[in-house]
Design a protein around this nucleic acid. Sequence first.
DNA 1: CAGTGGTCTAGACCACTGT
DNA 2: CAGTGGTCTAGACCACTGG
Lengths: 246, 246
Amino acid sequence: METLDKRLMIPLYFQLARLLREQISSGELAAGAQVPSERELMERYSLSRNTVRQALDMLVREGLVARDHGRGTYVSKISSSYHYMLDTFYENRDLLRRAGFTPTVQHLSTEKVIAPELARIALRLEKGDEVVRHEMVFFADGRPAMYTLNFLPTSYSGGFDLSSGKEGFLQYLDRASGVKVEHILVDISPVEAVTEIAAVFQCPTGSPVLLFQETFMDETQTIPIGLGLNYFNREVLSFRLFARRG
Amino acid sequence: METLDKRLMIPLYFQLARLLREQISSGELAAGAQVPSERELMERYSLSRNTVRQALDMLVREGLVARDHGRGTYVSKISSSYHYMLDTFYENRDLLRRAGFTPTVQHLSTEKVIAPELARIALRLEKGDEVVRHEMVFFADGRPAMYTLNFLPTSYSGGFDLSSGKEGFLQYLDRASGVKVEHILVDISPVEAVTEIAAVFQCPTGSPVLLFQETFMDETQTIPIGLGLNYFNREVLSFRLFARRG
DNA sequence: CAGTGGTCTAGACCACTGT
DNA sequence: CAGTGGTCTAGACCACTGG
């Protein structure tokens, strides 16, 4: 009935999930409201029930909706938007897209510097070795969401032109390193916003900020490809993950 | 062919997932080994492909296996080797043990209170409903590591005597709720230490502290069993997780 | 090319909730 | 009771990988 691009390259369940996500973040489906039933969605978009369920599964995992057996599916009262699941990672701009924002990127600087200790350890370098430092800010609907410092070995070749906006950082990293970044190791800590970050986030100096120290790894998890320090503005983004009992 | 209790109360996809999980942890399916193909599993256990995929979906989300389009499904090299990380969770005291500390626990209070909004939403309660609040502090080698507030429905029976130290909180929760806590949903955020927490952690008021807001879930991930607010002293503990490229 | 995972359909029966 | 989500089947075609 409505607008799903049948036989486009984007899977139907993904299109439906995106559509519902938009309706939720726009308020068309308000917090606490009942989502149309699975059979209703089947009918409306000419999909099979399995495909509808596959779309709803995504939203359930993202915490946007909750199913209630025999009653229906409801929009979660927490977090209509900004939550993001941590078991998979994406280009920062794609992360923002998945959280329902329109991302923009500002490339602040690219400099060759002596590797700070954090980077030296993560990238297994010697004291005094140089690294290339990329400094970026990501905005979500125009609001400052992430401040990022990436440290890469100088051996990586190939220019990185983020200002063009065509290539994401991970794509660049794949190309420059010759290895596909398949995993990241994330160390999570809360830090005080230093003046530089406070200025970017427009929050008081010393405010709590979430720091993800990310080591980019190849699929064998043996080669550190790069180090990223990602500072998140808690006013804009928050994080969520599932864990199993050990 | 093999042993799945058709027409028992446990879903087939769940039984298959459990069976494969056991084969992985026992080493029968070694790290890096190829999992039998979906069509092979169909045949072997007389299941439809969708059901097999539903089982594998669980394992993929848990990080135990990874799919490779056109090649096959493989046991992850990561999660089989143990990083004491965030993809699995433990009793708080066991978490400290795994981090190499000797844990001690101090039970500060147990009170019946009107559910604060966070707890009301997480536990799906009505305004004005009461909950039981347990307040605890965990020490690592004598240093204050975690400050914990747990909110449970009043319907749970059974006394909770943590001071004895014999029973962990999750064990108590299993017993009192009658449901096994199998998953938690964790919301991660950085917050300022309020005076109470600052006093416990012996750090300045307003220092950045890591907050894990944990919703305890049963194995179907539908029933919220309890809510825990865990504040971590960053001087003592930090967290790490693996994520896969999406 | 055969074998793999990725997507999708069109049914079916069940368990649960509310009226 | 009708309507909901939970599970399951038996097909189908596609895109990707490797030999």
